[in-house]
């Protein structure tokens, strides 16, 4: 006798641990951008080239964790939260899924590789995306130890020791206290 086919409906769950890990990383990165814009000249120059009140977000699709940063003043930035729907965003850079975010935030795929592998979607004016990517690169170089940062960026820069050590400490502090 023929077996009846069994239909089931599944609402696959969420990976709470991974979401939490990415949320913390993104939160810290958002705050680090705010801090770097106060500390590093190059980051300030990049912000200066962006339009007033320019808002950008980096995060995970669909409705995953994000950070949103807005240009404030002439060349500084403000971390303004994690909720992507709360305000209009000029430039959105999103990983297509949680696992893609995990690959990048566990340093197994850097941003160029994630882009090459079609894991990242950029939505908005691409000219500004270039500035944002440079900002993210600099922030990563500050936040990560050299061994890891070398994997994260295409070319590890030769900065004077002072810039690296002093600014790194300042950025870490400011990110933590949110100033």
């Amino acid at each position: 006798m023929r077996m009846e086919l069994v239909y089931r409906e599944i609402s696959p769950g969420r990976s709470y641990l991974k979401r939490a890990y990415l949320s913390i990383n993104l939160w810290f990165m958002g705050r680090a951008i705010q801090a770097a814009a106060r500390v590093d000249d190059q980051v300030r120059r990049e912000f200066r080239s962006l339009p007033d009140k320019f808002t950008f977000a980096l995060g995970i699709m669909p409705e995953g964790p994000h950070f949103i940063v807005q240009k404030s003043g002439v060349d500084s930035a403000r971390y303004i939260g994690r909720c992507i729907d709360a305000q209009p965003v000029d430039l959105k850079m999103e990983f297509k899924h949680l696992e893609a975010g995990m690959l990048t935030f566990t340093f197994r795929e850097n941003t160029p590789v994630a882009t090459a592998r079609d894991r990242l979607v950029v939505d908005g004016e691409v000219a500004y995306a270039c500035s944002v990517v440079r900002i993210l690169d600099i922030v990563q170089i500050y936040l990560l130890p050299k061994l890891v940062a070398r994997l994260a960026v295409k070319r590890y820069p030769r900065w004077p020791l002072g810039r690296k050590l002093i600014n790194r400490t300042r950025i870490y502090w400011r990110s933590l206290i949110g100033y």
Binding site: P112, A127, C130, S131, V133, R155
Partner: peptide, 13 residues
């Protein structure tokens, strides 16, 4: 050129 995204996938920066 600095604001053109084609450079993203160039092997060298």
């Amino acid at each position: 050129a600095k604001n053109d995204p084609a450079v993203f996938l160039n092997p060298e920066d």
